[in-house]
């Protein structure tokens, strides 16, 4: 549980800093795609995950459910890392 929260927190920090506008009230439950998350944002986040967790999320795992919000993305990272 702590693990998924840590990952969620690091993803939230990264996206606040590198992807989204500072004035956007981004939370772990914010709808990413509706907030403007695009293909370039996706590659940036995948690179961040690769750098911080050592693996690249395969394209087959990138779907609407995974990218629903930061919480679901963090859960995917935990599942694939297991």
């Amino acid at each position: 549980m702590t693990d998924v929260r840590e990952i969620e927190s690091s993803l939230l920090d990264f996206m606040r800093r590198e992807v989204f506008a500072p004035d956007l009230e981004l939370t772990a439950e914010t709808d990413l795609i509706a907030s403007g998350f695009d293909s370039m944002s996706l590659v940036r986040v995948l690179l961040f995950i690769e750098t911080s967790h050592g693996f690249w999320i395969p394209q087959g795992e990138i779907n609407a459910e995974t990218l629903k919000n930061i919480r679901s993305l963090a859960a995917t990272v935990v599942r694939l890392r297991a």
Partner: peptide, 11 residues
Amino acid sequence: AVGLRAKGSIN
């Protein structure tokens, strides 16, 4: 062309 605007912002 790669947009440099932060997502969720037009400024």
